[in-house]
Amino acid sequence: MSEAGYLLIKEELEDSLYNANTDEIAATTQRIQNPIHYERTLYTKENTARSPSFSTRWTSIDYEIENELPCPLCHQWYSKANFSRHAKNHSTTTKELLESNTDIVYEMINERKPNT
């Protein structure tokens, strides 16, 4: 800080001395190491993510109509968001409930499907 104040005072008194000092500082503060990556290098990210179609995770999309899923044991439709909780009332999982009773499930789906 004191050196900066000194240089400011010197600038007002002797302009040439200040310019000589700042040129010297500029010459010694240049980049010492060459850049590791050159600015013109193009970077491409390889897409290593898997496509969602190859997922092994089970989903209930095949059984869903209007964001609801059929319960083959109750013969009623429940919200997709709450269906897992409902399946627990039958002491089973959503997957087991829907896949173990496919004929009833598809019968309920066909009854509810809009005629197109």
Rank of each mutant, 00 (worst) to 15 (best):
M1S: 13
S2Q: 14
E3S: 12
E3G: 04
E3R: 10
G5Q: 14
Y6H: 11
L8R: 13
L8Y: 11
I9F: 13
K10C: 07
E12H: 12
E12Q: 13
L13Q: 15
L13T: 15
L13V: 12
E14I: 14
E14A: 15
D15E: 12
S16C: 06
S16Q: 11
S16F: 09
S16H: 09
L17I: 14
L17R: 11
Y18P: 05
N19R: 14
A20E: 15
A20N: 12
A20C: 11
T22P: 00
D23F: 04
D23Y: 07
D23T: 08
I25T: 11
A26L: 11
A27R: 13
A27H: 09
A27T: 09
T28G: 05
R31G: 06
N34Y: 05
H37K: 09
Y38S: 14
Y38C: 11
L42W: 04
L42A: 10
K45Y: 08
N47Q: 05
T48R: 09
T48S: 12
A49C: 06
R50L: 12
R50F: 09
P52C: 00
F54G: 08
F54R: 12
S55Q: 01
T56F: 10
R57M: 04
W58R: 02
S60Y: 01
I61V: 11
Y63C: 01
E66Q: 08
N67H: 06
N67V: 01
P70R: 00
P72M: 01
P72L: 00
P72N: 02
L73P: 02
L73V: 15
H75Y: 08
H75L: 13
Y78I: 10
Y78S: 09
K80F: 07
A81R: 13
F83R: 08
H86Q: 04
A87Y: 01
K88N: 04
N89P: 00
N89Y: 06
H90F: 07
S91Q: 13
S91A: 10
S91C: 05
T94M: 02
T94V: 03
K95V: 02
E96Y: 02
E99V: 07
N101T: 03
T102E: 11
T102W: 00
T102R: 14
T102N: 06
T102M: 04
D103H: 07
I104R: 05
I104P: 01
V105D: 03
Y106N: 04
Y106R: 06
E107T: 11
E107G: 07
M108W: 00
I109T: 02
I109Q: 01
I109A: 00
N110G: 07
E111F: 10
E111V: 06
R112K: 07
R112E: 00
P114S: 08
P114Q: 12
T116M: 06
